[in-house]
Amino acid sequence: MASGGRFAAGDEGPIVSRNLLHRLVVALLLGIAMAMAMVRAEHSDHGYGGHELTGHGRYLGVPPRQPPPPPPSQEALLAAAIKDERVTTYVLTQNVDLTTSLPMVSRPSFTVRGMCGKDGRRRCVINGMNKYRGFVANYSSHVALSLINLEFTGLRAVDDASGGAAAAVDGGRLTVKNCVFRSNKVGRGGAGGAVLVQDGSFDISGSAFEGNAAGDVGGAIFFGSDASGNVSATKFKSNSAMAGGAVYAKEGKVNFHAVDFSANRARARGGALFLTVTESVVSKTRFNSNSAGQSGGAVHVYLEFLNTTFCSDTSFNRNTAAKDKSSSKVSIAGPEGDKSRVFFCAAKVPSGVGYEGPDSRVATGCKGCKPTGR
């Protein structure tokens, strides 16, 4: 360098200074970039989605992604399937706790099948939470409603005069297979604590009804107004009502095969079963420890036009009637002059059968019983 601080010819000073300045700028920029990357990483770890925040909490650039909405509940999916008339079969894979009553079923055919558990064999539970009602079929649609591999508990009818807190079919067909109905209830004037079928048909098999109650008739089931069908391989335990502690059947045709009635209670008549103006064949069925406050500890039959037959493979044990003790098994009533009968497929009419009227209303006979039931 020459005197006075100037560069002499051949000096490299300006070039070196420019290179040094360039390196300093690059280093500074790299440092800033690394610092910003660290801030982003820290924000991402704290759930900010990797976006920068100002000191006032505002986002710089694109706001973070919002979390996806939660999937619809099982109740919402079931309700949507009921409303969608294109759906004829709905497979339930998880239990449902209702927060409102289910929508009305208004298409010709609808099936609900439970496939819960890892292997899909466990019953799925529909819980009414002691507030809400289950399936109701629209009368005008003549619905064929099928319920398979389900458990209904804590269902309630919406008012005292309703019936069938778990399932109500009027004018259609009800099919129930491998289901459990537990602790369902209808109010003071209600019929059928769990199930109601009117003016239609039914087939109930391989199921159980326990602890259901109706304020009026049919603690578990009410069959009315020309309902006809079969109940088979099914258990009724600890159900209660004013009449027909487990089942009340009116003006129809109902057959019971391989059914177990135990510990059901009626405050008036028919501890387990009340049949009025109903044609019925009862075979391979057991009535154990049922009770009635008045008569018909196990069964009360009101005869008019139609006959009832108890086959020889049907048994009665430890049933009681508080007022008319002579009718601990069956009490029989009906208008004078009517020629319908209660038949027992036996050599003689068993003890424990009481009459409200002439004893000619009862006879021996096996009409409707299969040979194995004699």
Rank of each mutant, 00 (worst) to 15 (best):
G297H: 00
S327G: 13
T364L: 04
I82Q: 07
A165P: 05
R318H: 10
R182Y: 07
G368F: 01
G50E: 08
S183A: 10
A208C: 08
T372E: 15
R65S: 14
F202E: 10
S140V: 11
A76I: 03
Y59K: 06
A41Y: 12
S201A: 15
R65N: 13
A258T: 13
G187A: 01
V16C: 08
A347M: 11
G271F: 00
V217P: 03
A27C: 06
Y132E: 09
E304D: 15
P70W: 07
Y59Q: 10
P358E: 11
N317H: 08
N95A: 12
N239E: 08
A249Y: 09
A79V: 02
F256D: 02
G164D: 01
R267L: 04
N239S: 09
V231N: 03
G219C: 03
G297R: 00
V349T: 12
C179N: 05
H300M: 07
G190A: 09
V96R: 05
Y90I: 01
V176W: 06
G211S: 10
A41E: 15
T99S: 12
F209E: 08
N255T: 11
R121C: 02
C369W: 10
S331G: 09
A268E: 14
F316V: 03
P14N: 02
T285R: 07
G31E: 10
R65M: 15
Y355N: 10
Q74T: 09
S207R: 06
D45C: 07
N178F: 06
I32A: 14
K348H: 14
K131A: 11
Y48N: 12
L53E: 02
N149H: 05
V342N: 00
K323W: 08
G61K: 04
Y248I: 00
L273R: 08
E12K: 13
G218K: 03
G297L: 01
R182C: 05
A220K: 02
R286E: 08
F135I: 01
V362S: 03
R156Q: 12
R267F: 05
N184S: 06
A233N: 15
S201Y: 02
A2E: 13
A258K: 13
